[in-house]
Amino acid sequence: MTDDKTQSNNTDKTVDAAVAEELQGVPEDFLDTAGENEELVKLREDLATAKQDVLYARAETQNVRRRLEKDIADTRAYAATSFARDILSVSDNLARALSAIPAELRDDDKLKGLVSGIEATGREIDKVFASHGITRIAATGLPLDPNQHQAMIEVPSADAEPGTIVQELQAGYMIKDRLLRPAMVAVAKKPD
């Protein structure tokens, strides 16, 4: 038995010597398993951080893309806003011209063509407004909405509730869901 034990010890020493001989010339920090574990843990942490950074970058890129798509859609939808505001004054003047023509002159054969031409132009402007999403704001008879109406004067009225619009002084318009120009209105108040 002691021979077996001695032989086993000799074999272990021979293996240890062979391993030691093989490991000669290898840097010691490579052989340090505790250092290797720390380095592996650090690399794994760096990898997790890099993965997280990539996910954040992807999310940010997607958010930027969505914002740009929304900005492009808004630009397309509301590109005519400035031009539409300018054309509103033309539409107002056309409506004033029509309302200024007395009824007896409307029936005059000499002015019938002129009146029908002005009316046709007004209808065409309304048609173009509708095709671009420009709509007139309803006002008369409705309660004052500060998001769509601008109260210019208060009129004493026994017939209408206080805060109700009794007269439209200038038409207001919306372009899609945005205010283009508020309606300028006269609002009822309690009589004195």
Rank of each mutant, 00 (worst) to 15 (best):
Ala80Pro: 01
Glu36Pro: 00
Ala77Trp: 02
Gln24Thr: 10
Ala77Cys: 01
Arg67Lys: 07
Gly25Cys: 08
Glu69Gln: 13
Thr33His: 13
Asp71Tyr: 09
Leu68Gly: 00
Gln24Tyr: 02
Phe30Ile: 11
Glu36His: 11
Thr81Asp: 09
Glu38Arg: 15
Leu43Cys: 02
Pro27Arg: 04
Glu36Asn: 13
Asp74Glu: 13
Arg58Gly: 04
Asp71Gln: 09
Asp32His: 06
Asp32Thr: 09
Leu55Arg: 13
Thr75Trp: 02
Gln24Phe: 05
Leu68Phe: 05
Ala79Lys: 05
Gln52His: 11
Thr33Met: 14
Glu38Ala: 15
Asn63Ile: 06
Lys42Glu: 02
Ala79Met: 11
Asn63His: 04
Thr81Gln: 08
Arg76His: 10
Gln24Ala: 09
Leu43Ile: 05
Asn37His: 10
Asp29Phe: 09
Tyr56Gly: 00
Asp29Arg: 04
Ala48Met: 08
Ala34Asp: 15
Ala48Ser: 12
Asp74Leu: 09
Glu36Tyr: 11
Gly25Arg: 08
Ala73Thr: 13
Arg44Glu: 13
Arg58His: 06
Gln62Ala: 15
Ala73Arg: 14
Glu60His: 06
Asp29His: 09
Asp71Ala: 13
Arg65Ala: 14
Leu40His: 03
Tyr56Pro: 00
Thr75Asp: 02
Asn63Lys: 11
Leu47Arg: 06
Ala34Ile: 15
Glu60Ile: 05
Asp74Phe: 06
Ala50Leu: 15
Ala79Thr: 08
Leu31Thr: 11
Tyr78Ile: 01
Val54Gln: 12
Ala73Lys: 14
Gly35Trp: 03
Asp74Pro: 02
Asp53Phe: 05
Arg44Asn: 11
Thr75Val: 01
Thr81Glu: 14
Arg44His: 08
Asp32Arg: 09
Ala34Lys: 15
Glu60Gln: 12
Thr75Phe: 06
Leu43Lys: 04
Arg44Asp: 08
Ala73Ile: 11
Leu68Trp: 05
Asn37Asp: 14
Arg44Pro: 00
Ala79Arg: 06
Thr81Asn: 07
Thr81Val: 11
Ala48Asn: 09
Thr61Ile: 07
Asp46Thr: 01
Asp71Ser: 10
Leu43Glu: 05
Glu60Tyr: 02
Ala80Ile: 12
Leu31Asp: 08
Lys51Leu: 14
Val54Leu: 15
Ile72Glu: 12
Ile72Leu: 15
Tyr78Cys: 02
Asn37Val: 15
Arg58Ser: 06
Asp32Gln: 07
Gln52Tyr: 11
Leu47Pro: 00
Ala73Leu: 12
Ala50Gly: 08
Glu60Pro: 00
Val64Gly: 00
Pro27Gln: 03
Val54Thr: 12
Glu60Ser: 10
Ala57Val: 05
Ser82Pro: 00
Asn63Leu: 07
Leu68Asn: 06
Val41Asn: 01
Thr49Trp: 01
Val41Arg: 02
Glu60Asn: 10
Gly25Ser: 10
Asp53Cys: 03
Thr61Asn: 07
Tyr56Met: 06
Gly25Asp: 10
Glu28Phe: 02
Lys70Met: 11
Leu55Met: 10
Glu38Gly: 14
Gly25Gln: 09
Leu47Ala: 10
Ala77His: 02
Ala57Met: 09
Tyr56Cys: 00
Asp29Ser: 10
Leu68Met: 06
Arg58Ile: 12
Gln52Ser: 15
